[in-house]
Design a protein around this nucleic acid. Structure first.
Lengths: 203, 203
DNA sequence: GTCTATAATTTGATAGAC
DNA sequence: GTCTATCAAATTATAGAC
């Protein structure tokens, strides 16, 4: 039983690494088995098929994205404080694993119904109302410019997440190393926060 | 000879469609052949292997991205005008084919040397100096805030490109249709331009 | 639970006729 | 140039021993 939990954890970690980099189509069960230090047959013992293993990883990966956005929707912080928390949250998350967003978005492209199914099963939810009203409130009070809440959220996501998806391009063109890139991302935590706040604050 | 050019064009168009959506690993020669209305053998007659066909598509796709960024580097417009042109250029490009950026970045992730090789062969170049100095000039003249040019460029790319990569997520969560999404992207052309200019302009 | 060996299927690639 | 038929390799999945 102890053995079982341990092996399962090792499998999931190996599978995550391989699926994140190669995607569903490019991943090989053999590579996952090698990375986990077991053999292919055992993979099928724990997860009946590649498909099942993949879905476990995809769902788990999506769920790692949710806490930060749920805090944006539901917490009681001010708009500016929420923006800072959001940017810091995602950049810190992605510094650990920069492949996550490209993986999620590519697989959602291939299977547009996945999200809908997860929402119907209440496994994933999307309740931005409180935050959207907060934005409209601040606009009415003359604190920020008029802006569609959805556009603001897209901008926050874009500025936080895109650089990690573009990491090979950024490091390739600028001849940065890994450490340089991570330093750049650390600077972005305050840079982007200011960038966003500057652009919406009314002065 | 006329037939040859025509068939080759049809093949490339079919291959682009399939590779863009499925990637190198997920694409099937059979699907490309079907979409082109020919059979697999003919694909191999024109392109010796899947690998060769893929590389043709990848290079062509990257090159479609270059004119807009080259204009950013090399033209004589003002900084603010360049930002507007850049945002409009990429959003208009991606409204036609939203899969391009995810395709390019995923394949660069898998083959980080590709970019380096293309730069060494002078097929792709990267000369941002003039634009970077323009930014520093405007900062010195008190027109815009101090900002690292590379961060500004990343922000411009992120705000223009990311929403297309996140299209399935955006439409999935908000229950938008395709037309709604395209309208949102059209609005972004001016929204983002203002967003960026607002955040860097000194007042 | 874990392994070795092998079946079954998919898929890129080629031979050869027209 | 284009097709049909077929090969060869790669890869998922399973059977069965320990």
């Amino acid at each position: 039983m102890v053995k079982e939990q341990n092996t399962e954890r090792i499998i999931l970690e190996a599978a995550r690494e391989v699926f994140h980099l190669k995607g569903m189509a490019g991943a090989r069960m053999q590579e996952i088995a090698d990375k986990a230090g077991i053999n292919k047959a055992l993979l099928h013992y724990y997860y009946r098929s590649k498909e099942k293993l993949f879905e476990a990883i995809l769902l788990d990966t999506i769920q790692r994205f949710l806490p930060t956005v749920r805090e944006l929707w539901e917490s009681d912080y001010s708009v500016f404080q929420k923006i800072e928390n959001f940017v810091h949250g995602y950049i810190d998350l992605l510094k650990q694993n920069s492949y996550m967003p490209a993986f999620i978005l590519q697989e959602l492209n291939l299977n547009p119904n996945f999200l809908k199914e997860m929402m119907e099963k209440q496994i994933i939810s999307f309740n931005p109302m409180k935050f959207f009203m907060q934005i409209e409130d601040e606009t009415r009070r003359g604190k920020i410019i008029p802006i569609q809440p959805i556009q603001l959220v897209i901008n926050m996501l874009a500025l936080s997440i895109f650089p990690f998806m573009a990491k090979p391009m950024i490091t390739g063109f600028t001849h940065m190393g890994n450490d340089d890139f991570n330093r750049l991302m650390d600077m972005r935590k305050t840079d982007i926060t200011n960038f966003i706040i500057n652009s919406i604050r009314l002065r």
